[in-house]
Amino acid sequence: MQRSVVVYLVGRIAQSLLVLWVVVTFLFFLFRLAPGNPLVAYIDPTFTEEQQQALMRQFGLDKPLSVQYLVYLGNLVQGELGDSFFYRSPVIELVMEVLPNTLYLTFTSLLVAYGVGVVGGILLAWRRGSRLEQMGVTFTLMTRSAPEFWVGMILLTVFAFNLGWFPSSGATSPGTLYASEWDKLTSWDFWRHMVLPATTLALYLHGLPLLLMRSNMLEVLDEDYITMGRFMGYSELRLMVRHAARNALLPVITAMALGVGYSVGGNVVVENVFGWPGLGRMLVRAVAASDYPLAQGAFFLIAVVMVTMNLIADVLYGVLDPRIGAGQQAQH
């Protein structure tokens, strides 16, 4: 039993690494095989041939593609992602600087979304068949269908431009310097900036846990032990919360781990609407500016978060669901 867990974990981690390797390779060749000189946006027309060559050498672009690839992989293993064409500085420093902002936004919105989703799901299951359920489901489907940037634009118009309750862009007020990340996380100013983007994301994200919770509940409610409980005269609320919800919660928790990964990638749009200094905005900016090393780096980091979260979700599923056991791969 113990051994099989270890074997499973090792295999699962190896698989994650394989996925990352494929992503990195695919990305590398995608960028390099694009037509045109990768540095075209950065070579001033007044540069001499010599200066252009020097620039190509500096970024290692004068070597054959296969060598470039090996160098890239070699650096990657050591945690190096190359130098940004645009900033002329190491990509790893640039992406690590904004990664926390993306994670704060993601976790905040996910916590809100799953909190609301779970409670809402229980509520709708409890009131099954009622008008409330119908309206709740419809509303949730609407928020899941509405484009995030559009919801963001509407929130901006109403709460930032018209009412002026919240700032419209950025993560801090001008000239704010924090001594540490902790200072930042405990400051009122930071959270005030967080409200609109996190709400936008949460509005989108709460649909999945809500619907999932509801359908799980409905399923659990059919189980014999709930029927038994009913016969024994337990109140409906107690049955709901103490018995049904506890069992229905399992898949929702694993869904959340998966959700972190997905929303790190999906944050792109929201970060751009609200000028949030995160990974998604950096990626879009880098792609638009043909800053390939930076775009590759940002993409890679997003993929790392996703793959890690997939891994955690799988393991969690195994740990939490006694029926499956860790030796078996979770099916989702």
């Binding site: 901006l156 930032a160 431009f161 002026g164 700032p167 419209s168 862009s169 950025g170 007020s173 001008p174 000239g175 751009n272 609407v273 000028g275 200094p277 905005r281 900016r285």
Partner: peptide, 22 residues
């Protein structure tokens, strides 16, 4: 102090001028 804020969306910039953030 002289503070240069990076605000990608011009409309946000205008909003911030109106409320005095910039």
């Amino acid at each position: 102090r002289w503070i240069l804020r990076i605000i990608p969306n011009v409309e946000s910039a205008l909003g911030q001028l109106r409320n005095g953030e910039i």
